[in-house]
Amino acid sequence: MSNFTPKERLLKVLHKEKTDRPPIICPGGMMNAAIVDVMNRGGHVLPIAHSDDKLMAELAVDVFTNTGFENLGIPFCMTVEPEVLGSDVDYGSMKCEPKITQEVFSSSSAVDFHEFAVMLQTGRVNTVMQATYNVARRFPDIPVIGNLTGPVSTAASIVDPMIFLKDLRRNQLAAHKVMEYVSDFLIAYAALMIDNGADVISIADPTATGEILGPRMFCEYPLVYINKIVEAIHSQGVPVIVHICGNINAVKHALPELKADAISTDAMVNLRKLKEEFPKLITMGNVSTYLLEMATPEKVVNNTRHLLREGIDIIAPACGLSTSTPLDNIKAMSGAVKEK
């Protein structure tokens, strides 16, 4: 009865259409499955795959073939965008994801605005595009997910985050200008991903949580700018997943205003209740990454089956996976979704 290819299944769910079962995915970017077990098997390893398009593509394929996740996800970090916008990045190690070593601007007012056309030819933009094109061409039936670092997280990766958070309140004009700039850049960057074969765009914005910003600022900044990005991506006919980190209670009321096609949340959020409250929401998640790293495959299976029974639309890890997560646990998770 599995007449759907993984790409058809995911796209149907994102378009609120019926399928045989939920897709099981791990989008990439902040939520990627390039765990050490996978890299040891395939031999395509980080950190060098962060900046080599062929290795990046092969690693995405290794993740796909080893884990049972039904997608290809590019890239494997959250630093491509801030790097292009001027911040210094340390590519980390096999076990440790890249990080910003120094934000380039000391405050929102200090941000220099550059031409996107030029920037989109710098940094690792081309690496990401080549890798996307490579996997999209080779796997026409598997959805390719292009991952964006959300606008608040990107802004707080080019402006000192402590200052930026204060600017959101005391220097709103400058903060909005930076958000506008970053969002326009992300729109142009996502458009390139789509041109190169991305079927779905996933946005993760870990700095834009209700816990950090509170409801008022969540609605004033991330809600507005994420929606702007989502609408631009929609105009190219591509669906969007938005991941919100942490406890969403403070901003739950605003979720129906998000124009994303699916909302992914962390493990502490009860997705069944969220669906009851907002029946139109397509929910994604939220197998505990703590369980995935620490527990036995049986426990992972139980957690996954529980989510299936609750009718969660897309099964996925709840947040970024630890690189030391055992492959057996991930296979247990994907196996549990496919066993029906």
Partner: peptide, 14 residues
């Protein structure tokens, strides 16, 4: 009490 969030707390400390 979730009246203040991180930006507010940072500004208080300033």
């Amino acid at each position: 009490e979730e009246e203040y969030f991180i930006p507010e707390l940072l500004m208080c400390s300033d």
